[in-house]
């Protein structure tokens, strides 16, 4: 089928403002949208820029806004579109070129919540024990590929006044460590999250959960962080 792709173009050094360019690609219904973007780049316009790496939804490179909804281009098949698709970069982030955005603020926020296991008890010679049930508590969160689709879709992050909110992706990782039975820094972690730009920044609007390409119950995880902080404060 013939697919029209209307694509956001912007080169900050040169263009005064962004514009849209429409390309036509002959595509198989089972082709990925990423395949179409590549065909444009290879056959029609090599100046089009976007990121990619794995091609099958495991690396998190190609998050973009597709018909208004953030998702991975490599996970969308041509057959799910009508004649035309609108493709734009992830909102919230600064555009560097076309569909490539500057993710450094995203990774800085990520870094700020200490995304690593913190333990005080020295480990034994073998593994730290963890029951399947304990593992299960955070299992869904380890699917996260840091594609930033959730953060880009979050109305709180989109709002200039609250843009310092760490955002759902970072909270998913915070959740993963906070609820890992091996971690021994829950107080410190809760301290890092217990403020208006931390877990309390979330207004439970569910946008993040709707877009997550790995089907992570993002909002629920954030809710559990809030509950844990609340309970810790009120218990003692």
């Amino acid at each position: 089928m013939l697919l029209k792709l209307k694509i956001f173009r912007f080169e900050p050094e040169k263009d005064e403002k962004p514009y849209y360019q429409t390309y036509e690609v002959e595509a198989d219904p089972m082709d990925r949208l990423l395949d179409c973007l590549n065909r444009i780049r290879w056959e029609q316009d090599p100046t089009l820029s976007f990121r990619m790496s794995c091609g099958h939804g495991v690396c998190g490179s190609d998050g973009m806004r597709i018909n208004g909804i953030c998702g991975l281009a490599c996970q969308k098949l041509v057959r799910s579109f009508n004649e035309e698709v609108l493709i734009e970069p992830l909102p919230v982030f600064k555009v560097v070129k076309d569909l490539v955005v500057d993710l450094s603020p995203f990774f800085q926020k990520y870094h700020s919540i200490k995304p690593y296991l913190i333990t005080k008890t020295p480990p034994s010679d073998t593994e730290r024990k963890q029951s399947p049930e304990e593992h299960e508590r955070f299992e869904e969160a380890i699917r996260c590929i840091l594609c930033a689709c959730c953060t880009a879709s979050c109305p709180v992050n989109q709002n200039r006044e609250t843009e310092n909110y760490v955002g759902p992706a970072v909270l998913v990782r915070a959740f993963r460590y906070l609820f890992d039975s091996r971690d021994e820094a829950s107080e410190e972690r809760m301290g890092l999250l217990d403020h208006k730009d931390g877990a309390w920044g979330c207004q439970t609007l569910w946008k993040c959960t709707e877009v997550c390409p790995k089907e992570i119950p993002v909002t629920r995880a954030i809710g559990q962080i809030k509950k844990r902080i609340y309970e810790a404060k009120h218990e003692g």
């Binding site: 690593y116 296991l117 333990t119 480990p123 010679d125 073998t126 593994e127 730290r128 024990k129 963890q130 029951s131 399947p132 304990e134 593992h135 955070f138 299992e139 380890i142 993963r176 460590y177 890992d180 091996r182 971690d183």
Partner: peptide, 20 residues
């Protein structure tokens, strides 16, 4: 190597006894 990874925090799936 595996235990080292586990100590760093790799979330391995577990046996019923809680081992990797």
């Amino acid at each position: 190597v595996i235990y080292e990874l586990e100590h760093m925090g790799v979330p391995f799936s577990r046996t019923p006894e809680g081992k990797i």
